[in-house]
């Protein structure tokens, strides 16, 4: 009994290691590639680089608009988070903590945004945003990202909101505290881990967004990281792999740092404090 149990748990651990290997090894491999000289990349490679070079990073950091793209990406993502958070918190509170006619219909309606074929909506969106002077503007781009982050964000926050006892709001109501004040001073602080998680969600939705940025941001000065990266990598006939690798590392790095700082909050924030 005991030995078969441990065989199962070792097997399980092996499968987990294999899955994590498939998910993370490409990052390691591209990291190694980014330090190889270009000549080494086209030949058969050894696992350990024979020569280490920084030339790829020099081209990325010094010769491309990398820093501009990073800053632009940050601006769009920050706008997206700032726009989404109030909408998600208000929407989630509305759907999961208040009662009104049409509540179910509206929450279906919000989730239905994911029906719409984004690749095909860009034409009419371009026309509408043109009329609103939102073309070639980070804000316009963030507005699109927000629209696609909010519905699922609302759903993500539900677990946390549901775990709060209704008595918290009732106690505040009996004490004569207004609903709005209750939302700001009781519900939001209580739901802080959930709100951190959805901020992270909105940030990443925006950070990885490609289509709207490509369509709506016309000037090179406004390009975000995904657009810039795609341009330098897939723009040429032959891919310069060393440079592409450095670009990939440079684009993954900010996310990596974000994960180091708040990564462990994500799962906690969407699972109602059930995970210690």
């Amino acid at each position: 009994m005991n030995s078969s149990y441990s065989v199962i748990s070792i097997l399980r651990l092996l499968v987990i290691v294999l899955i994590m290997f498939i998910l993370l090894a490409p990052f390691l491999w591209i990291l190694i590639a980014s330090f190889r000289p270009n000549m080494e990349l086209v030949r058969n490679q050894t696992l350990i680089p024979q020569n280490i070079t920084l030339e790829n990073y020099v081209s990325l950091f010094a010769k491309s608009a990398y820093w501009k793209w990073v800053i632009n990406s940050f601006i769009v993502s920050l706008y997206t988070v700032i726009l989404s958070l109030p909408l998600i918190v208000a929407g989630a509170y509305s759907v999961y903590r208040t009662q009104f006619r049409g509540r179910n219909v509206l929450s279906f309606f919000l989730l239905s945004v994911y029906i719409f074929p984004t690749a095909l909506l860009v034409v009419p969106i371009f026309k509408i945003f043109d009329g609103l002077s939102l073309i070639d503007s980070h804000l316009g781009c963030a507005l699109m990202n927000t629209a696609f982050a909010v519905p699922f964000g609302i759903w993500l926050l539900q677990a946390f909101l549901r775990s709060l006892p209704p008595e918290l709001e009732e106690a505040a109501a009996v004490d004569g505290i207004s609903k709005i004040r209750t939302l700001f001073q009781i519900i939001i602080p209580q739901a802080a881990p959930g709100i951190i998680a959805i901020a992270m969600f909105a940030f990443i939705v925006s950070w990885t967004e490609y289509l709207f940025a490509m369509t709506l941001l016309l000037s090179n000065d406004l390009h975000t990281l995904p657009i810039g990266l795609t341009g330098i990598v897939f723009g040429q006939y032959r891919v310069n792999w060393g440079f592409a690798a450095a670009g990939a590392v440079g684009s993954a790095l900010p996310v990596f740092i974000l994960f180091l700082i708040v990564g462990r909050w994500f799962i906690r924030g969407i699972s109602a404090g059930a995970i210690k």
Partner: peptide
């Protein structure tokens, strides 16, 4: 009258303390 205007105070079974304060 809404609860807050009735000038009553309530003690709940689970206390409903605000854990962040």
């Amino acid at each position: 009258l809404p609860p807050g205007a009735r000038d009553v105070a309530m003690v709940f079974q689970n206390y409903a303390l605000y854990s962040h304060m």
